[in-house]
Simulated scan of single mutants.
Amino acid sequence: MTLTSGATRFARIRARLETLPVAEGPQAWAYEFLLFGFKQGWACLFGGLMLVLLLATHLFYPADAALHRYDFLTLAALAIQGAMLVFRLESWREAKVIAAFHVIGTVMELFKTQAGSWIYPEASLLHIGAVPLFSGFMYAAVGSYIARIWRIFDFSFTHYPPVWATVLLAVAIYINFFAHHWLPDVRLALFAAAILLFGRSWAVFTPWRIPRRMPLLLGFFLVALFIWLAENIGTFANAWTYPDQRDGWHMVSLAKLGSWYLLMIISFVLVSLIHGIKRSPAQIR
């Protein structure tokens, strides 16, 4: 098997699925829905593998292992990332997105753990301060998903706001994640700004033969919801712990959805700067 055979095999499978003859009507709708799910799952490859690792190591990793569990997770994340590049399951452009997310996420982690927003309860050697290095890959998983889905579904947009305005909003959101510990939390104003900027924007994507569209704000919410669900898996796996979970695990507060929604906007804007914004005609089903 060559280094690119895995990617080539997937490309052939995907091409076959794209061209499969399916009768019009309910059968075609069902097939398009399944193909949409398949592509979504493929876009989530990095994040999905990380969640599997978190759960598997929580349940089965030996407590007396010479290598700390957190360090194993860091090395495993590096191996997954390297394999995706070697087998061309991810482009170098997408790797740049992931690297940016890793840096931005680690900086936030250093501050938030110092502020007591959450803790990493297990020991590790591969860490910066109180932050094990695998944590940056959790943010990178979000970046990987957005970058990959952008390409897989050939995103374009209607009524997209000026790029400079979206960058200003993303910077303001990022600053507020830090500043609200000393200054008033302005997230309500940030939500309002997001509605003003993206309220008329639609994402156009092609799951199969016909381009479809969705309000961009709704897309942000759906992805934020799935991240919140993944966060519940992560805290259940003791990858990190919130202060109110120290006496026992329970589901993460729904209020965290707001934080993830704002983080989604940062994530989306970062990816847009690398992929660029392709404008689309408004008449899309």
Rank of each mutant, 00 (worst) to 15 (best):
P132N: 11
G48E: 06
L190E: 02
F226Y: 05
K256D: 07
A56Y: 10
G199K: 10
S144H: 12
L89V: 00
R213N: 09
S135Q: 12
L75Q: 00
G136I: 02
S280D: 09
S201A: 15
I233F: 09
Y261M: 07
K256E: 10
V142A: 14
P162N: 06
K112N: 14
R148P: 00
E109V: 09
G116Q: 07
Q27L: 15
A239L: 14
A100M: 11
A99V: 12
T158V: 12
V86F: 08
E109Q: 08
L73M: 11
T2M: 09
A79I: 06
Y174S: 05
Y145R: 07
V86Q: 08
V223D: 01
F38Q: 07
F226G: 04
P162W: 04
A79P: 03
R209K: 15
M138D: 05
L73H: 02
I98K: 03
S253I: 07
H58K: 07
M138N: 12
L216C: 03
W118I: 04
F33R: 12
E122T: 14
H180L: 09
I128R: 10
G143F: 01
E24G: 13
S91N: 00
I146F: 14
G199Y: 11
M264D: 02
D247V: 10
S267T: 13
F36C: 11
F157Q: 06
G219L: 11
Q40T: 12
Y120F: 15
G82C: 11
D64Q: 15
H275V: 06
G248C: 09
G41C: 10
Y120V: 08
S5E: 09
R9Y: 13
I210S: 12
M84G: 03
V252S: 05
S135H: 10
A282C: 12
F177V: 08
L73T: 00
L59S: 07
W92R: 10
S156K: 05
D64I: 03
A230L: 05
E90Y: 02
G143S: 07
Y120E: 05
L110S: 04
A170R: 03
W249K: 05
L183E: 06
L51W: 06
H250C: 11
Y31C: 09
Y70N: 13
P184Q: 09
F205M: 04
V167R: 09
H102L: 14
I173G: 02
S259L: 09
L270A: 12
V186G: 00
L254F: 15
D247C: 07
L51P: 02
P281W: 09
A76P: 03
R69H: 05
A237E: 07
E90W: 01
A203D: 06
I149C: 13
Y31S: 06
A11Q: 14
A194H: 01
L34A: 14
V171M: 14
L217H: 02
G136H: 02
I152L: 13
F36E: 01
E18T: 13
R16E: 07
